[in-house]
Design a protein around this nucleic acid. Sequence first.
DNA 1: AAAATAATTGACAGTTTTAGTCAGGTATGA
DNA 2: TCATACCTGACTAAAACTGTCAATTATTTT
Lengths: 144, 144
Amino acid sequence: MRLSTKAQYAVRAMVSLNLNAGTAPVSLRAISEWEDISLTYLEQLFVKLRRGGIVDSVRGPGGGYVLARDAAQIRVDEIIDSVEESLVPVSCMEANGECACSSDSRCVTHSVWQGLGARIRMFLASMTLADLTAEARQQIKINK
Amino acid sequence: MRLSTKAQYAVRAMVSLNLNAGTAPVSLRAISEWEDISLTYLEQLFVKLRRGGIVDSVRGPGGGYVLARDAAQIRVDEIIDSVEESLVPVSCMEANGECACSSDSRCVTHSVWQGLGARIRMFLASMTLADLTAEARQQIKINK
DNA sequence: AAAATAATTGACAGTTTTAGTCAGGTATGA
DNA sequence: TCATACCTGACTAAAACTGTCAATTATTTT
């Protein structure tokens, strides 16, 4: 029941992006240094985040990435969805909650996984990037 | 964010065991046939379930496995713990909630994972084997 | 126009985990 | 003692994870 580092990195990178968002776009190189994540790996993640409508890219010198919309409108589950990490706990079950199993007893236990998946989704959908960023600012202030 | 098949199989096998529990112990061979799970794989799982205090084994001819205590006293999270599937969503975090990370921003996102882990645990701890078995009986009745 | 910057893409590879199988050994009841 | 059933450890094929590398395209600055 592990969340992949891909998902963890994506969320961290997004917090970092928002923390350092000024008037100018933020380059992946900068995030790479701040967060100590491989630049090329970040590139992979941000391609997906862009396709997912989470960020917009700005090309050329001084370019980088900016939030596609307000941080308060970006939910954590959207970030994880974008990098293609399934939040459904079992493989045979689709995002809509349907299942293609034959065995009876198997589908009984499925109600458990289905309920679990719904809780996970609900929790991650209840948090926005703005929440996390505010928490991060608080944390940094304490550590000073 | 997948639950391993190990955990899924363990829960299914426990439901099957409880469904078919009479006066005699239930053999793994029987569960293997009912649930279409490899016998040797089941053996691996039940060694751990026994060590986890979920089931007791009865050796010799006519032997098999029985519940170590009443089904209503066996929580789903205990079953999953027994087969050694971590319910904590990130690797650096221990079951106690502590984390050994250095980066500040990383630990900010950790509060998210920590909260998520707690929800998962809470949900799975709220369900007992008796609940699942009752649900299974209901399901079987409907399908008839 | 040229150069520099930065995003974009696709192929590839090492490592780890998963999901089992296989070959035996050990304890128990009939 | 013999069949049954549990117990153990080693082993393996396949998949997923976690990146790296090389090359390309687009944009802005000089």
